[in-house]
Amino acid sequence: MVTQVTSFSRNGLSDFIVQRVTAYVLAAYTVVLLGFILTAGGMTYDIWREFFNQTWMQVFTLLALLSTCAHAWVGMWTIGTDYIREHYFGESADAFRLVYQVGCVLALACYIIWGVQILWGS
């Protein structure tokens, strides 16, 4: 059993499930969004705004945003542990990886906060 602190779940199975579930959410979101765009019959800021003012769409969008972040985190963490290794980076590989991971987390956190602000802001 391999343990690594920076994997939040420390469990491959939950990461695996998170990736699958979030992928379904994102797929559904894509379908809804595309369906709206294709059926809206012309696109203006007002139509767009109105669509996103509905509570269900706000919740769905937030869910999609959270899914994106969770999905991205698992993926980015995997990429980091695949490629940022001693083989390429020498002894400072661990430090590099930590910086990279912190960077990812901060970026994802920003997206969430910013997203909430957009969705519910004035």
Binding site: M1, V2, T3, Q4, S7, S9, R10, N11, G12, L13, D15, F16, T78, T81
Partner: peptide, 12 residues
Amino acid sequence: LANLEDPFSVFR
């Protein structure tokens, strides 16, 4: 199974 559920052993 308990030994395999971490993020690396199988899930890579």
